[in-house]
Amino acid sequence: MDAIDEKIIAELTRNARISHSDLAGKVLLSRNAVRQRVERLERQGHIAGYTIVRAGHDTGTVVSALVLVYRQDRMRGGDVLAALKRIPEVVICEILSGDFDIMVRLEAASLERVRSIWEDIAKMPGVRDTVTALTLSSIVNRPRGERRTTPQG
């Protein structure tokens, strides 16, 4: 599997019903090339129906991490933001006030993939430093529609 296959699997993990056209736009390939890759991944056993099955990995397990990014120049760091948008495993990217410039939440299929993405982020032109923390457990994770607001008294 190459990096494009990893991106395809990450996108299918996020939304297994995504169309080949939409998937092609996310991984920057033609619709036909995506269809061929998905069929190959199915034949190889990485994709089974609407469930991602990865040989050598625990199925259904997602490794989450927070990467706090220091940019060299807060005001001219648009290239870093554009590059982060292209990483399929980036599920949240927020600009922060305070010491850190950007908070990135990754959800990847393996610890190795998290490490690879961290290395890519650290090497980006415009990134001065990073701090990474792996998620050990999730205590609260509410979908947007289920978030409560504090009642006004």
Rank of each mutant, 00 (worst) to 15 (best):
K85N: 03
N32G: 14
V62G: 05
D99N: 14
L68P: 05
P151W: 04
R115A: 15
R86V: 02
I92E: 15
A108V: 02
E11A: 06
G25L: 07
R54A: 01
L134T: 11
V127S: 08
S116T: 13
Y70F: 11
G78D: 13
R113C: 02
I121D: 07
G45F: 01
G25R: 05
G126R: 03
S19E: 02
T135W: 04
S64L: 10
S21Y: 09
S30M: 02
N15A: 06
A10F: 00
T132Q: 05
R43N: 07
F100M: 15
E42K: 08
I8N: 02
I87E: 04
C93P: 05
M75E: 15
R115W: 09
A65G: 05
I121L: 07
D22P: 02
V80H: 08
T61H: 13
K26C: 03
A83M: 02
I47R: 03
R43M: 00
N32V: 14
Q36C: 03
G145I: 11
R144P: 10
D2E: 07
V53A: 09
G98S: 01
R115Y: 11
Y70M: 11
E107C: 04
S110M: 03
E11P: 00
L68G: 01
T13Q: 07
L41P: 02
N141I: 06
S137N: 12
E89T: 03
N141Q: 14
G49K: 07
I18K: 05
G77N: 10
Q44R: 07
E107D: 10
D99K: 12
D129H: 13
R74K: 11
E6V: 07
V67W: 00
N15V: 04
D22T: 00
E42F: 01
S30W: 01
R14E: 00
L66D: 14
Y50M: 12
L111S: 13
R142Y: 09
V131A: 15
G25A: 00
P125W: 10
S137C: 07
V104R: 05
G45K: 04
Y70C: 09
W118N: 15
I4N: 09
H57I: 09
T135Y: 02
G77T: 06
H57T: 13
E94F: 14
S138G: 08
G78A: 06
L111N: 14
A3G: 08
V67F: 04
I47C: 03
M75T: 13
P151V: 06
L136E: 04
S97F: 13
E146C: 07
Q36V: 11
T13E: 08
E94H: 15
S97R: 13
L136I: 11
A109P: 06
T59C: 07
D73A: 05
R105H: 10
L29P: 01
H20N: 15
A48G: 06
Q36E: 12
